[in-house]
Design a protein around this nucleic acid. Structure first.
Length: 118
RNA sequence: UGAGUCAGUCAGGCGGCCGCGUCGGGCCCACCAGGCCCGCCGAGGAACGUCCGGGCUCCGUAGGGCAGGGUGGUGGGUAACACCCACCCGGGGUGACCCGCGGGACAGUGCCACAGAGAACAGACCGCCGACCUCUCGGUCGGUAAGGGUGAAACGGUGGUGCAAGAGACCACCAGCGCACCGGGUGACCGGUGCGGCUAGGCAAACCCCACCCGGAGCAAGGCCAGACAGGGAGCGUUCGAGGGCGGCCCGCCCGAGUUCCCGGGUAGGCCGCUGGAGGCGUGCGGCAACGUACGUCGUAGAUGGAUGGUCGCCACCGCGCGGGGGUAACCGCGCGCGGAGACAGAACCCGGCGUACCGACUGGCUCAUCCG
């Protein structure tokens, strides 16, 4: 994901699920055929440039191996300050848990009104 | 061997699995897009802070003056600097060496807290000396600044002459100040001789004065392409000139028919700039050095929701324990096990500096102390 507008739409309209180290925003693809787009938000409150780079790279590596689970959905992963000191294993646990929660919300949302037009 | 000082280098290494970006090539698809494979390359000594100096770009080439800002021993280096080198002066250290926002306090103005009697053409609390008064304790007037006390600093130091007591009042030497001459040095300055008066405080990171330097804004500079929208109102103006170049002002010069404000509406996409530059390394020559120069050689980060990684293992580093070996001993290798540390920090137009952060490892020069020859 590389447009500011796409980030804004996903964060505003997507299903949200938060854990201690991160928050995910998910907009599910109704037919599951599209190509998934993923963005990361690592704010300055997480740390300096080096710390934020490491957090983003770890999250990207974790999301890459989970792409097949997204089913064409748009995803934004927002890191929280506690992510700076967290291990990759910890980030993986939080990511999996949050993804499950967000996908549950998104399914209900899709059933109710269909996928929002971006 | 120990302690110290200066300079420099490095910023863990290797491998497995899974990945990312630019560029080049190939293939698929060609509606632009996009996808797959291969290859090259892919963060730092500070990439950081953005404190100086430049390159580069634009502002109709930016002239004079004022204001403002900066620099401040001398000589050199440099594209330039507030940087670097050498030297001078002052201070610290036994020493190697280190530290210094280091022009001017007789151009002027101003300030010097507290303590103290007195703090800048100073001053007299205690004390010392003389005269007078008084039975005595002591008091009054005058002289004095050697001694005491206060202070960061009290108008020279030592010895003598002198005196009622004293004092550069006078003398000798010393220190300091000023002037002249001689010698050395490109210079800051240093050394020497003579004379003078007889002592003259500090702060300029207070205003200020002197010398020299400075046009402004910055890659969100600047340029190109694509695309969107909707206008309305008010003010000042068109050789009697609004407004602008011109950041603060004045003079001067130039451009000049639009421009300023309010309400409302639209867009924030792509490409170029974009990395070869005062470049690194080696050798020779010049120079005490900074540096310069000639030749040779090496050249490859360019992202834009922002690549340069994620994860696991082994080795290397440090500490402790055990085993065993060498050695008189201190101690030194070897093997195994456990534990620990791996810092500071991420390019965003590019260079030269400065400043700041940082677990540590290593190399070399020099100094001091001790021991041996």
């Amino acid at each position: 994901m590389r447009r500011s507008a796409d980030f804004a739409v996903t964060v505003r309209d997507g299903a949200r699920a938060g854990r201690e180290t991160l928050v995910v925003h998910l907009v599910a693809d109704a037919d599951g055929a599209g190509r998934s787009r993923v963005g990361f938000v690592v704010p300055r409150s997480v740390g300096g440039a080096v710390v934020r780079n490491r957090v983003r790279r770890r999250l990207r590596a974790l999301v890459t191996v989970r792409l097949d689970r997204l089913g064409g959905a748009d995803l934004v992963v927002r890191a929280l300050p506690s992510a700076a000191g967290a291990s990759s294993a910890r980030l993986a646990t939080d990511l999996d848990s949050a993804l499950r929660g967000a996908q549950r919300h998104a399914q209900r949302s899709v059933q109710r009104r269909g996928r929002p037009t971006a």
